[in-house]
């Protein structure tokens, strides 16, 4: 330990920083996304958008059930993907959680809002093919946002690693559940 803490000036400082970056690089370059993450995520989001749009337009208990079922599919797929990532790599990255579950990031958010808005409008107008198209577009855009985050993370892991913690996610899930209860009571 004595020799490890001795310090030999600027060259030593450079070497220590380089070795630390190298160690972090060894970890991050070895990380892999679960096979089929992007198609699975795109599909789950498309299902969620489509069922939510139809459910809202239906304005009935059946519609609400459809909406909740779609949300359940999305949450199940997202949870499975995050579990697979952790199992494959032996790490948890909160940035990935934020991108996969909450769609944080410009591309995912914009794609989701446009997809959801378009699908809902189309559902009220009973244009079912347009509901499907908007849902698929929203899902693909959402998955594209996750892909962009992954590329950015691989290039600069320290900057992009942080995101939403499991505690915050649990709180958001609780708030969402309360929101649904309120909607059901008021509706």
């Amino acid at each position: 330990m004595e020799s490890e803490t001795r310090f030999d000036g600027p060259d030593d400082a450079r070497a220590r920083l380089a070795a630390a970056d190298l160690a972090r690089g060894r970890l991050t370059t070895g990380l892999k996304l679960p096979r089929g993450l992007h198609p699975a995520l795109a599909g789950a989001v498309a299902v969620q958008i489509g069922t939510a749009a139809v459910g809202i337009a239906e304005q009935s208990a059946l519609g609400l059930g459809l909406l909740l079922a779609g949300l359940g599919v999305f949450l199940a797929v997202a949870t499975w993907l995050l579990h697979r990532f952790r199992r494959i790599n032996g790490v948890r990255v909160d940035g990935l959680t934020g991108r996969v579950v909450l769609g944080t990031g410009t591309t995912s958010s914009v794609a989701y809002v446009w997809g959801f808005g378009g699908a809902t409008w189309a559902a009220f107008d009973s244009q079912w093919w347009l509901v499907g198209l908007a849902a698929v577009m929203g899902g693909v855009g959402y998955a594209l946002g996750a892909r962009q985050w992954w590329d950015a993370y691989r290039a600069d892991p320290a900057t992009h690693a942080r995101g939403v913690s499991p505690q915050v996610l649990a709180m958001l899930a609780l708030v969402a559940a309360l929101g649904f209860v309120v909607l059901m009571v008021v509706g």
Binding site: M1, E4, T5, F7, R16, L17, A19, A20, D21, L22, A23, R24, R26, L27, T28, G90, V91, R92, V93, D94, P157, A158, A161, R162, S165
Partner: peptide, 19 residues
């Protein structure tokens, strides 16, 4: 300051937690 510890904490900046 020890290289192994600097490498450890630097590596942990890339993840929320590691096994």
């Amino acid at each position: 300051h020890a290289p192994a510890r600097l490498q450890l904490v630097t590596t942990l900046t890339a993840v929320a937690e590691a096994e």
